[in-house]
């Protein structure tokens, strides 16, 4: 067997090794510089998104001891996941009457707060939605067991609060039902009045009322089934105008989300009283793709 000798290391290879090391170093430095030049992720022209939501609507937007819950909150979490890695601030509280103003003044970048889409508001802000449909109903106390239809509310005092679309519908039925509308500052004031027998009913969107019915179950509050008034309400995500591309991106996501079982599970989790009261709740409360398309990212309807 022929003897083998180790091949002498050539001194000429040394510069090659240094060259390779230098190349690797340059590549790493290049990558590092690339990553530092990468633009920050943005949405609605902001590098950090602030979402405004309610804190006093159980089942929809509720906050207790800094712990948020409700369908609006779940939608917010899904939006956050969808837009990742865009950073979001902690949600800020908003009143019903302050929702449009917060968006227009730039204090909030997005409003997810049981926000009804109306043709008047569409002229001021953009909507992505609806993610939930509802009608205006009535919440009564344990003493109103006999209230089964609208005429049973004749002669009663019915409470609603400022900044919602519910006030006008109550005014409309004032002459036909002969019930007195009482308008207070916010939802909790009305519930307090109902529990104290100051008013005989509270009227606003059924989804919100079912949330209160669930929360005050022990006090015997209940939603009058199948008694509705007013214009159908469609809850949308409010955005400032001028960001149509981002708006359409969110609309495409919403159409997908509403079509999944996640949406059904979210409603069932947030509003168990609503889903238990009506087996056909999906057909009443779930928006179709056409409805989302017709209301999202528009100034008005196209012919």
């Amino acid at each position: 067997m022929p003897a083998t000798f180790p091949k002498p290391r050539s001194s000429l290879r040394l510069p090659g090794r240094i060259g390779r090391s230098a190349a690797v170093l340059a590549l790493l430095l290049g990558l590092a510089s690339c990553s530092s030049e990468e633009p920050e992720p943005e949405f609605l022209g902001r590098s950090r998104i602030t979402v405004a939501t309610h804190n006093d609507l159980p089942g929809m937007s509720y906050s207790k001891n800094y712990d948020r819950s409700g369908l609006d909150f779940l939608v917010f979490q899904h939006v956050k996941e969808e837009l990742d890695p865009v950073p979001f601030s902690e949600p800020m509280d908003v009143t019903s009457g302050g929702r449009v103003t917060q968006l227009r003044q730039g204090k909030a970048d997005m409003v997810i707060a049981s926000f009804s889409i109306t043709s008047e508001k569409m002229k001021l802000i953009d909507f992505v939605g609806p993610y939930l449909k509802t009608r205006q109903g009535f919440l009564v106390g344990p003493d109103s067991g006999d209230v089964q239809q609208l005429s049973d509310l004749s002669g009663t005092r019915i409470c609603t609060w400022e900044g919602t679309t519910s006030k006008e519908a109550l005014e409309d039925i004032k002459n036909t039902v002969h019930a007195e509308p009482v308008v207070l500052t916010d939802a909790s004031d009305c519930i307090e009045q109902l529990l104290d027998h100051g008013v005989q009913a509270v009227s606003t969107d059924q989804t919100i009322l079912y949330g209160f019915a669930q929360r005050y179950e022990d006090d015997g509050l209940r939603v009058v089934p199948d008694v509705t008034i007013g214009v159908p309400q469609d809850y949308g995500i409010g955005l400032p105008k001028g960001h149509r591309e981002d708006c359409r991106k969110l609309k495409d996501w919403l159409k997908e989300y509403v079509g999944t079982s996640t949406w059904i599970r979210d409603v069932e989790t947030s509003l168990p009283a609503l889903t238990a009261a009506d087996t056909a709740w999906i057909s009443k409360h779930k928006p179709s793709d056409e409805e989302i398309e017709a209301r999202s990212c528009r100034d008005n309807i196209s012919p």
């Binding site: 109306t118 679309t165 309807i301």
Partner: peptide
């Protein structure tokens, strides 16, 4: 066909 109560809802599309 337009909403008579444009401040309360949006029924035009349907």
């Amino acid at each position: 066909i337009s909403d008579a109560k444009g401040d309360q809802g949006f029924c035009e599309p349907e």
